[in-house]
């Protein structure tokens, strides 16, 4: 199982290093959203942490939607999805590998976005805490996102359908991540652990459910 997942991840990473599609489009896209938000919302110095946390997570969400959409859209376009599903491997391995790759891709984008955010919005960040929050939020996002992306890969108007299905399911992740991020950036003095426990709870429950139902999504 682990070998299979590692092989599948390796396959996607090799494909990415050849095209650099996610990196070359996702990173500028995320940076652009940060800039656009700066025009749309006046981020005063006194509420930079509070508003900034929201801006940061909307950026992650938008970039993430594009990222997870590509994980199955590319397979479909090249006709490799059938090959992947015909391979004598467990479907849950395919799901876990795709989810891990999506987490990895989102993490790369986040690793570029956060320093840019700190630079542009002039906020103080507890780096290690933010890393933990971002990771927990990203796991939840990619976990459900990968499932929905596999579903809409064959659907009409999939570009709209993916966020339409994914974002309502993501409400807890968005709320908890934004709150926890605002707290680690010093917007509030309250504890971040309720939000972290909510995030971890969501991650565990939803990813487990997704592992169980994924095979019904890709079955032919």
């Amino acid at each position: 199982m682990c070998d299979t997942i590692a092989t599948l991840i390796w396959k996607d990473l090799v494909a990415e290093t050849r095209t650099k599609e996610v990196f070359l489009t996702g990173v500028p896209f995320a940076l652009l959203i940060l800039v656009i938000f700066n025009f749309a919302i006046d981020v005063g110095a006194d509420r930079a942490a509070e508003v900034g946390a929201g801006i940061l997570w909307i950026t992650f969400t938008f970039a993430g939607v594009l990222g997870v959409a590509r994980s199955f859209a590319d397979e479909r376009d090249r006709g490799t999805l059938e090959g992947l599903l015909l391979a004598p491997i467990e479907r849950s391995a395919v799901y876990l590998a795709k989810t891990l790759v999506n987490i990895l891709f989102m993490a790369v984008i986040e690793l570029v976005t956060v320093p840019a955010f700190v630079l542009l919005f002039n906020v103080e960040v507890a780096w290690l805490d933010l890393l933990v929050v971002a990771l927990c939020g990203t796991v939840g996002f990619a976990g459900v996102g990968t499932l929905v992306a596999a579903m809409v890969a064959n659907a009409r108007s999939r570009e709209v359908l993916l966020p339409l299905l994914l974002l309502p399911l993501q409400v807890p992740v968005l709320i908890a991540s934004v709150k926890a991020t605002a707290i680690v950036m010093g917007a509030h003095t309250e504890q971040s652990w309720p939000w972290m426990s909510l995030l971890v709870g969501y991650d565990v429950v939803l990813v487990a459910a997704a592992v169980l139902v994924f095979e019904y999504v890709v079955e032919e």
């Binding site: 409400v171 709320i175 908890a176 709150k179 309720p194 909510l198 709870g201 429950v205 939803l206």
Partner: peptide, 8 residues
């Protein structure tokens, strides 16, 4: 989970 998150 959604309900819990919006309550908090």
């Amino acid at each position: 989970i959604i309900h819990q998150s919006v309550v908090w």
